[in-house]
Simulated assay, not measured.
Amino acid sequence: MPRVSQMHLDRRRRQILDAAGRCFAAEGFHATSMQDVLAASELSAGAVYRYFPSKQAIIEAIADETLTHIHTVLTEALNRTEPPRPTDVLGDLLTAMAGLDDAKLRIRIVIQVWGEAIRNPEVRDVIMTRMTEVYDVLTQVVIRAQKAGLMNPSVPPRIAAETYIGVLPGLMVQKAIFGDAFDLPAHVSALRTLFGS
Rank of each mutant, 00 (worst) to 15 (best):
G115H: 12
R192S: 08
Q112T: 00
L17W: 15
S5Y: 04
T139H: 01
A96C: 09
R11S: 04
A25W: 15
G196D: 11
P121T: 01
G179W: 09
T95M: 07
R13L: 02
V48M: 02
V142T: 03
D183R: 01
L90D: 00
M34L: 12
Q15K: 13
A63T: 00
L78Q: 07
G99D: 08
T129Y: 06
R124Y: 09
A39T: 11
M131I: 03
E133N: 08
V110R: 01
L100C: 11
A61Y: 08
H69S: 08
T75Q: 14
V4T: 01
Q112W: 00
G99P: 14
L105M: 12
S33A: 11
T87G: 06
A145S: 07
P53D: 11
G21I: 08
L191G: 10
T32L: 12
A160H: 05
P157R: 03
E82D: 11
S44A: 14
N152A: 04
D92S: 08
E133R: 11
I127F: 01
H30F: 13
A45M: 06
V188C: 08
A61P: 05
H8T: 06
E42N: 14
S33C: 10
I16G: 13
A148H: 04
A63G: 00
L67F: 14
L105F: 05
M151V: 07
L194C: 05
T163V: 05
L138M: 11
G28M: 15
R124D: 08
A190M: 12
G179Q: 09
I127A: 00
L38C: 03
V73S: 14
M97S: 06
L93G: 08
R192G: 03
D64F: 06
R124A: 12
I127Y: 01
I143A: 00
R124L: 10
A98D: 13
A117C: 09
G99S: 12
I127L: 01
G28H: 15
P84E: 07
R108N: 05
G91W: 01
M7R: 09
A117T: 12
A57Q: 09
A31V: 11
R80P: 03
H30M: 07
R13S: 03
